[in-house]
Design a protein around this nucleic acid. Sequence first.
DNA 1: CTGAAAGCGCTTACAG
DNA 2: CTGAAAGCGCTTACAG
Lengths: 342, 342
Amino acid sequence: MSITYKDIARKAGVSISTVSRVINQTDLHKVGKTTQKKVEKIVEKLDFTPNVIARSLVSRKTYNVAVAIKDLEDIINPYFNQVISGIAGVLERRGYFLQLVRTVSAKEKALSPYYLKAIQEKRVDGLILLSEEAKNKDVIELFAKKVPVILVNRTIPNITAPSVLIDNEGGLYDATKELIELKHKRIVFLAGSFDFQLDKQRLKGYKKALKEANISYDKSLIIEGAFNFNQSATALGGLLKKKVKFSAIVASDDVMALACINLLNERGYKVPEDISVIGFNDMLLLPLASSLSSMKLPLVELGRKAATMLLSIINNDPIKEMEVIFKPELIKRNSIGINKKK
Amino acid sequence: MSITYKDIARKAGVSISTVSRVINQTDLHKVGKTTQKKVEKIVEKLDFTPNVIARSLVSRKTYNVAVAIKDLEDIINPYFNQVISGIAGVLERRGYFLQLVRTVSAKEKALSPYYLKAIQEKRVDGLILLSEEAKNKDVIELFAKKVPVILVNRTIPNITAPSVLIDNEGGLYDATKELIELKHKRIVFLAGSFDFQLDKQRLKGYKKALKEANISYDKSLIIEGAFNFNQSATALGGLLKKKVKFSAIVASDDVMALACINLLNERGYKVPEDISVIGFNDMLLLPLASSLSSMKLPLVELGRKAATMLLSIINNDPIKEMEVIFKPELIKRNSIGINKKK
DNA sequence: CTGAAAGCGCTTACAG
DNA sequence: CTGAAAGCGCTTACAG
């Protein structure tokens, strides 16, 4: 079997209490220098590492943090993997491990969804919620139980929760305004889903920009693409089929914007000569590869912030701000141009 | 505090042994139907979930699996996140949790690197190694200790380990051959690093294709780009500065290929008119966005296979094949063309 | 069919 | 300065 405190204690001729003190560097002032050295030597020689499970059982700390995304396969999405990368870096430096969990339960026999299970089973010390799919009710309950939770890019009505937010309204306002300045009047907003707060907020920003420019809001220009390539293409295809006129598109995500560019090219439209396109998130190399203009966010930094806040809460350190807001910034590339139609 | 077996037992008027039997559905035939119902009712009412830490301490199973990448921030790389996505899907379905660990230790005070720590601390039941950075010596030791480990895209000399492999030699052979058929003779191979097996194998395939076509091998056409955008651009920049002539590039990764296309465009070369470029991995949308030809691999499927093999080993199920090999397939897009120079 | 008891590998007052 | 003992929340023979 594996080595335990008992083995170390026997070899050193001391008690396991002493072994524990040396290994954990606690109450060391009470341990004789010689004894300490003796134990340390043996620990080193055996390359001994304490069983973290046993330790957790007593200390009630697991040094594990759960990061919840909708579906585990979503880490393929550059938005999520940038944020997670930022989280991971911080956890790593602070000696925590990162556990990936999902919020959507497929055909699950468990009483609670997977991500709640990690909490209930005491697998983790805290949770960072990257997904809108977790139900408000469940999240509120977690707060009630004093479980350390950080929300990313979502809020809970009537509750001020520790959260890292994105200025979605401002982002879409800026994007729309830029297009308006380029003389566009019929601008499509390709949202992911209006079940999501982020898209509701973005729609607000879109409307605000139109209003300021005295352009009337046309509901037929608003479509949903489910945050993925294929459904975005389908949504835009529907618009083209209905012969709805437009000269620009703002999409809620770069992948969706790319789907638009791709479809437009297939149908013989040129970007940006015929249609201007702006994405969201400025995901790594994707925009560069396709010359896509996008609303850039410091996603890695955002993840770092979320992790730092969570660790503060876990360790009962005071946190300065309950809500940190990141503002997207327009990065112009060769996917937007002046509207030349009429 | 939280609820335990003791609480359930008291409320049901039974012993904790009985509670355990009902919750775990073990030896149920020995438990009276009425008793069972009574306990189940209470468990349900309290939405009770057993403490997995305590359970692990006894059962020596954590239902956690570690996935090791070089640096946690590497999940940004589409190669890794596709493989991890495949792994995650399988683990999820089988009730396992996924822990992300890294193989490279920065300034770490621990005796062993982070990923080994997860094993030593008994945090996990097994390990999937996605990184070449883990030392052969350490990996061999893990096998000696009977730790369930799966290697992905790497082998250990003289050892047949359970592994999921990529036909790197065949992949670069095919890519090079395609370019040769397009009349290219001076083909650059932009590798990541020759410290890595995968690039050594790819170089073999490159040489083999040249040899078959009676094209002599020119060492000055072989460069290293460290698997990232910037260093790839620098490497190619060096080649251009030295005025080395070439009409095509095969890169060890799509991001690297994209760096080439980008730099070539900046310097006034057209792809594919002047220079043909082929990438590797066919990473999601990147090639589509940049019309990049690439060697496609079923990376998600590869991850699934690795996870399935690991769970078989963990559960002592027989595994059919120790080594599964995936073969890349050339996807032609508009980044390659016939060499028109002389 | 049911329960008492030992034990998993640690931590932590407490006693000396 | 050091150790014996209780306890964390479970599982698992064993006894009845």
